[in-house]
């Protein structure tokens, strides 16, 4: 068995570089929010956030040097979360458009309010 102690120690500068990159990405995400991106705001913001998360995972949390098992655990949890998100969103996206009903409902509400009032 090999000595495990200072198995993989990066230089302090490596960590400082990662931190600088994270700060730059924070600035980018704020800048992107001000830019006229329309519907692309959230995808771009999530993309930048994912990039930051990957940096933190790989370097700060030593994702690079930890074994396959840790990677499996993280991916498993993310897969599970994506199931929750995608199946639930799929239900909402595939429901028939009932906005006309919503209008009717609020009209009916108005009516009952005025008649009772």
């Amino acid at each position: 068995m090999e000595a495990q102690a200072p198995s993989h120690v990066q230089s302090s500068w490596a960590y400082l570089t990662i931190f600088a990159a994270l700060v730059v990405l924070t600035g980018t995400t704020v800048g992107a929010a001000l830019a006229p991106l329309g519907h692309w705001h959230i995808p771009v913001a999530l993309l930048i956030a994912a990039g930051k998360a990957i940096l933190i995972y790989l370097f700060f949390m030593h994702g690079l040097e930890s074994g396959r098992l840790v990677w499996l655990i993280v991916m498993g949890a993310l897969l599970c979360l994506s199931i929750l998100l995608s199946f639930t969103l799929a239900d909402y996206r595939s429901r028939p458009d009932d906005s006309h009903l919503r209008g009717l409902r609020s009209a009916a509400c108005e009516q009952c309010r005025t008649t009772s009032g």
Partner: peptide, 17 residues
């Protein structure tokens, strides 16, 4: 906990059209 905030910040503070 930091990663969570990295996602919360744009999702809560930076919703724009």
């Amino acid at each position: 906990v930091d990663v969570v905030w990295v996602f919360l910040f744009p999702l809560l503070y930076l919703l724009r059209h």
